[in-house]
């Protein structure tokens, strides 16, 4: 992981939330010591089950929330150290696409207003120029120019999600964090949106962090995949390697739990994980996956397994070779 080629570098990112329960304070470990890098033009997927910390990583990178510890470097700039003013200016280089195409677009603004709002905030001068930029962004997501004067409710779910993507693209960001952008969509519309994201990657040399709990979708969109469990990285590999030769027990269980389309598939080798995802306010000692891991041994409780490179570009956090 050399410093020069890494466009985005996340180092030891940690986020704890202190919650006041009934009578006692609890510390929720949303993220613990997460480190990874992303090259310019690369799309990296963050997968993991609910509460694993995917959104927390995305928001902390854009500094929509303040991390408890750790650093985020984008193109050499330490985002975590920027003053509020500097951060505001820096924001246009990184944009967030939200999951819910219904809730994230204001019903009282036209699409044109939604798309140019960020441009005004970023001080882009000239109405005509802003309008042209909005038109370009609409065209890049295959929406017609007349959409500019219409309202969000006039569009279908898939079209709204494309408006959300256009809103992120209009500022010509270098990094996009897309948080479950296709999860609320039906499969036919989801497929259209996946194809759109893939063509945008190629055309604009975008760097993207793509968050999803759906491994099938992530495999289509991403070059590399990071698997999270309870706020920690379990495995990192290229999409192809991760799906074909996963090395971490959790990744294997996750893949095995995705129902395939073949009703005759042999289910005898299927791993069904026992138990629930542990409480992030009281994570297991050592390996956070150990309470559900079929391979856990005493030693797994003793210390947190380091994320080690098992093959070039393939990392796993598991002390056993199973």
């Amino acid at each position: 992981m050399s410093e020069q080629t890494d466009f985005l570098s996340v180092r030891g990112l940690t986020k704890h939330y202190v919650q006041r329960g009934i009578g006692r304070r609890q510390t929720v470990h949303a993220l613990d010591d997460v480190s990874f890098t992303v090259a310019r033009g690369e799309t990296v997927g963050l997968v993991g089950e609910s509460g694993s910390g995917k959104t927390t990583i995305g928001r902390a990178i854009l500094r929509l929330i303040e991390p408890t510890a750790g650093q985020v470097l984008l193109d050499g700039t330490d985002v975590t150290a920027l003053s509020p003013r500097a951060l505001r200016r820096f924001r246009k280089r990184m944009q967030y696409v939200f999951q819910d195409p219904y809730a994230s677009l204001s019903p009282r603004m036209t699409i044109g207003e939604i798309l140019t709002e960020g441009l005004v905030l970023q001080g882009v001068r000239g109405r005509e120029k802003r309008r042209q930029m909005a038109l370009d962004a609409l065209a890049s997501v295959d929406l017609p120019a007349d959409a500019l004067d219409r309202y969000a409710f006039e569009f279908s779910g898939g079209q709204r999600q494309r408006i959300g993507i256009a809103r992120a693209l209009v500022l010509e960001p270098e990094l996009i964090v897309a948080d479950e952008p296709v999860s609320a969509l039906d499969v036919s519309v989801q497929a259209q949106t996946i194809n759109l994201l893939r063509s945008l990657q190629q055309r604009n040399n975008l760097t993207m962090l793509f968050i999803s709990h759906d491994l099938g979708v992530v495999e289509y969109v991403c070059d590399r995949i990071i698997v999270l469990f309870l706020g920690r990285i379990m495995e990192i590999a290229s999409s192809e390697t991760l799906l074909k030769a996963p090395r971490h027990p959790y990744t294997r269980a996750l893949i095995s739990a995705v129902p395939g389309l073949d009703p005759d598939a042999d289910r005898s080798g299927q791993q069904v994980l026992q138990g629930d995802i542990p409480n992030p306010a009281n994570p297991p000692s050592g390996c956070v996956f150990r309470t559900r891991c079929p391979h856990a041994i005493d030693r797994c409780a003793a210390e947190v397994p380091p994320l080690e490179e098992v093959e070039p570009g393939h990392f796993k956090a598991c002390i056993r070779d199973v």
């Binding site: 099938g216 979708v217 495999e219 799906l243 074909k244 893949i255 395939g260």
Partner: peptide, 11 residues
């Protein structure tokens, strides 16, 4: 059925 991204086919 053709729209569903099937695991292991994306590469």
């Amino acid at each position: 059925l053709a729209c569903v991204p099937q695991l292991g086919t994306a590469s």
